[in-house]
Amino acid sequence: MATRKNWTRDELLVVLNLYHKLTFGQMHARQPVIISLAEKLGRGANSVALKLVNLASLDPVLKLRGIKGMANASALDLVVWNDFHADLNETVPASEEALRKIFDLDEGSELEVLPNEGVRVRRCPQGPTEAVVTVKQRRGQEYFRDAVVNNFGGRCGVTQLGVRELLVASHILPWGSHANERLNVRNGLCLSRLHDAAFDRGLIAFDDDLRLLLSKRLKQELPQRAIAESFAAYAGEALILPDDAALPDLAFIAEHRKKIFSNT
């Protein structure tokens, strides 16, 4: 009989990174991303999938939606879960870097977790306009984008646009002024580039039922076709997320509405 291979702390940090880039319903052994990671870890896909579902039992966000994982999480699972979420600004970049090393990426490459395809590696666009950021910041941003976009099923929460290149992982509470929430998936919305710009500038917001609100400034532009079709057509409609997604934090939504939204 084969000897059971114990999970290490480093492996669990990588699995936790993946955990936040998949929804609960995607945590099964046929999932392409899980298969890819399992091969790199030298484990079976069933083993990785079970570990993800065990970790789900520790997730308070899933419990809010009435979703339970398998109650077989180990003592080490609990310790690593708590350590990971205690300081996302430190643990997330470290886990992202560990994931990149597992897939043997160099600095000129980017890793994307695509639930329907697996793990994709592509060359990064580089040039004189590229923002100068630390490696830690870049890894955090890469993680946040994958986690938020995948949490919304790879589609804009307003329009359901599904072209990944046209989607942005928007921060509800701004990156610059809310350091502790920078990498919190519940501080993210997946929006088209147009709706991200409007949200960032307070031209749109969402109410406590996550329904789209239009600012007075946008309403003044009606019946201009671009405004009518891109914004007014969705006014009053709720954000669309998968049933097993982590919902945006309503306290964050309310703060954005109060401090950034322009409806006067």
Rank of each mutant, 00 (worst) to 15 (best):
Q141E: 10
Q141S: 11
F144R: 09
F144N: 00
F144Q: 05
F144T: 04
R145T: 10
R145E: 12
D146L: 06
D146Y: 06
D146W: 10
A147Y: 01
A147F: 09
V148R: 02
V148W: 06
V148D: 03
N150T: 04
N150S: 04
N151Q: 06
F152S: 11
F152L: 09
F152N: 03
G154T: 06
G154P: 04
R155G: 02
R155C: 09
R155T: 14
R155W: 00
G157W: 03
T159K: 03
Q160Y: 11
L161F: 11
L161H: 09
G162E: 08
V163M: 13
V163W: 08
R164D: 06
R164Q: 07
E165W: 13
L166G: 13
L167I: 08
L167N: 10
V168H: 10
A169R: 03
S170D: 06
S170A: 14
S170I: 05
I172P: 02
I172N: 03
L173D: 03
L173F: 04
L173Y: 05
W175T: 01
W175H: 12
G176K: 14
G176V: 07
S177D: 15
N180H: 13
N180I: 01
E181F: 13
E181T: 09
E181M: 13
R182A: 09
R182D: 11
R182V: 13
R182P: 15
L183D: 07
N184E: 14
V185S: 00
R186A: 15
N187E: 02
L189K: 02
C190D: 06
C190T: 14
S192W: 02
S192N: 01
S192D: 00
S192A: 11
S192E: 01
R193K: 15
L194F: 11
H195G: 03
H195N: 09
H195D: 00
D196V: 08
D196N: 08
A198T: 01
F199G: 00
F199W: 07
F199R: 06
R201S: 13
L203C: 06
I204R: 06
A205C: 04
A205W: 01
A205G: 12
F206V: 11
F206D: 07
D209A: 13
L210M: 14
L210V: 03
R211V: 01
R211F: 01
L212I: 12
L212N: 03
L212S: 05
L213A: 04
L214S: 14
L214N: 11
L214K: 10
S215T: 08
K216L: 09
K216M: 07
K216V: 08
R217W: 10
R217I: 12
R217P: 07
R217E: 15
L218Q: 05
K219Y: 01
K219G: 15
Q220C: 04
E221C: 11
E221Q: 14
L222C: 07
L222G: 06
L222Q: 10
R225D: 08
R225N: 06
I227E: 00
I227P: 00
I227H: 06
